[in-house]
Design a protein around this nucleic acid. Structure first.
Lengths: 144, 144
DNA sequence: TTTATTTCGGACAATTTTATCCTATTTTAT
DNA sequence: ATAAAATAGGATAAAATTGTCCGAAATAAA
């Protein structure tokens, strides 16, 4: 469904949010250990998240990755997916047809659209704060 | 969402179904031209469809790929997706966690499950005959 | 200002997916 | 039987994705 990069990106974002509530910055190494992902690859994904204004970074001693505490609830899963995988998952045709739309639909179009729109709505209505709080309460997990 | 192989597989199956209604066998070349896909790669996918009993093949002169006319309505999109991409799209965790389930869910689990189940239901309830008939009536298309 | 620390970013490598090519095998028609 | 036609399948190549490494740039603390 999502690329590996996107999966890591979402997990990393949740972990950073969790720590930003406590005012802690985290390093790529710490993030990768916590979300069980390859460190250098995760660092690359963090760069993309920074470029897309999902997280911010601070270089130098005592630096690391963090999020503005008050923006955490404004950041939606859709923002992260957009930043890393783009919007093809919302907009693309189920059969990979470039010109598939209402006017010239593929055979799956109508039925696929329902599912795709529901996915879109879900991603757009799920914010990082809710996800982070579930983890904090031990209801959900980021590893394995 | 689906792999290229799976997209080609679905498109090819629909085209074969369409021709099998008329009792015509079709070649990989003809299929690839009609669904706008690479011929040799499509041929490989057809082999997988044959192995998984989605279509049958006849070698030698006047051979080609065909489907049992009476089974066309019994074949669901889910069968084709299963044959080519496996069931990870139904069963996999949205965040790629191997051990994600009801007991130890990832933060996206509940919301993702709703979408994934709807996708599953859609694929399991859509049969090749309906898709082929839509094309025949000029309501939907397999190319571009 | 110097040093230690940390992200940034480019180059490279491994793996997976997508795609091609060629030969073997099977089947039908003559 | 033989030849022609067609799928089967292995080897290989190209492209995309995933993953690693290392030096440059930036920053904070001393």
């Amino acid at each position: 469904m999502f690329s590996k990069a996107c999966e890591y990106g979402i997990r990393a974002s949740i972990f950073i949010a969790l720590n930003s509530f406590e005012g802690r910055r985290v390093s790529p190494k710490e993030i990768a250990e916590e979300i069980d992902s390859p460190t250098a690859f995760t660092a690359k994904i963090l760069q993309a998240l920074v470029r897309n204004n999902i997280v911010s970074s601070v270089k130098g001693a005592y630096g690391g990755f963090e999020m503005d505490k008050h923006r955490i609830k404004e950041i939606k899963l859709a923002d992260i997916v957009d930043a890393i995988d783009g919007d093809s998952i919302y907009k693309g045709c189920g059969l990979g047809l470039h010109a598939c739309d209402e006017d010239r639909p593929c055979p799956m179009h109508d039925k696929f659209k329902v599912v795709r729109d529901e996915l879109k709505t879900m991603l757009e209505s799920t914010n990082l704060e809710d996800l982070a709080l579930d983890i904090k309460q031990g209801d959900t997990f980021l590893r394995r």
